[in-house]
């Protein structure tokens, strides 16, 4: 089931102005992505690891997703140290483990985890509906926000539709196997999903026009940038500047 596990809450992080969270997550992610030294990355990781705690997210769920992210990283650890050129540290038969490869893998691990934690703490703590309105206030093109909100609205409906189709197939003794019949069944199922989606879209569009839709979603939610938000903005800015400074002093 698709669900927004972390969107609802009363923690300090949940109460930060969504616009600030979107901007902070974006700047933080890009900063992490371009940093190459370990000091700023560690600083970013510490900050990112604090945020889910402050947001009082359910740690078990965060950890489960963290494991998923690190599964791929493990794969990189298995390959990159062997394929990156540089000074050898260890010889395993014909394969050479290089220092550069190990450092690269470690750097990617830090970056991935830091960005993931920041994303889950800052972006996943708001519903996509709120995110859409925040993006709208941040001057993201109206059509794109509109598209996002419609997609979000119908993801859950279409998932129900999909589960219904799967149930219908299962009732008719469908068991997925590696053969053409299975692929055809899935293809028809997906086709049916598209057909129903299109028919529904037609109805939705007509209903929206009936209600005087003129190309704009009006949000009843008013965002207010409070003193607490200023404090948050200041703290986040200080950490990011410190990380940027750490990266920069190494470059000169």
């Amino acid at each position: 089931m698709i669900s927004e596990d972390f969107a609802v809450g009363t923690s300090p992080v949940h109460r930060i102005d969504p616009r600030l969270r979107v901007v902070a997550a974006t700047v933080f992610s890009f900063l992490c992505a371009v940093c190459n030294r370990f000091e700023p990355l560690l600083l970013c990781l510490v900050m990112a690891a604090t945020l889910p705690l402050l947001a009082r997210l359910e740690l078990r769920r965060v950890l489960r997703r963290l494991l998923l992210v690190n599964g791929l990283i493990l794969f990189l650890w298995a390959v990159l140290p062997l394929t990156t050129g540089g000074s050898p540290v260890l010889n395993i038969g014909p394969a050479v483990v290089t220092k550069e490869g190990l450092l690269l893998s470690a750097r990617i691990t830090l970056k991935s985890n830091a960005i993931f934690l920041a994303l889950i703490a800052l972006m996943a703590t708001q519903s996509v509906g709120t995110l859409g309105h925040a993006l709208n206030r941040l001057k993201v093109p109206g059509k794109l926000v509109h598209l996002l909100l419609i997609t979000y609205r119908y993801v859950f409906v279409l998932e129900q539709e999909y589960l219904r189709l799967v149930r219908a197939a299962r009732v008719r003794c469908f068991t997925p196997q590696t053969r053409i019949h299975t692929y055809r069944t899935y293809a028809y199922l997906i086709g049916m999903l598209f057909v129903r989606a299109a028919v529904r879209a037609e109805r939705v569009h007509q209903a929206m026009i009936c209600r005087g839709f003129s190309g704009r979603f009006h949000s009843l939610k008013e965002f207010s940038f409070t003193g607490v938000d200023f404090a948050w903005a200041a703290i986040i800015a200080i950490v990011l500047l410190a990380a940027g400074w750490l990266e920069w002093i190494a470059a000169i």
Partner: peptide, 26 residues
Amino acid sequence: LDYDRIARAGILAASFFVASLIHVPI
């Protein structure tokens, strides 16, 4: 995409999102 087609694009995007969760056996 004009506004008449955005509803369709959005709902197709949603069905794409759902359909891409399907795992087929191999």
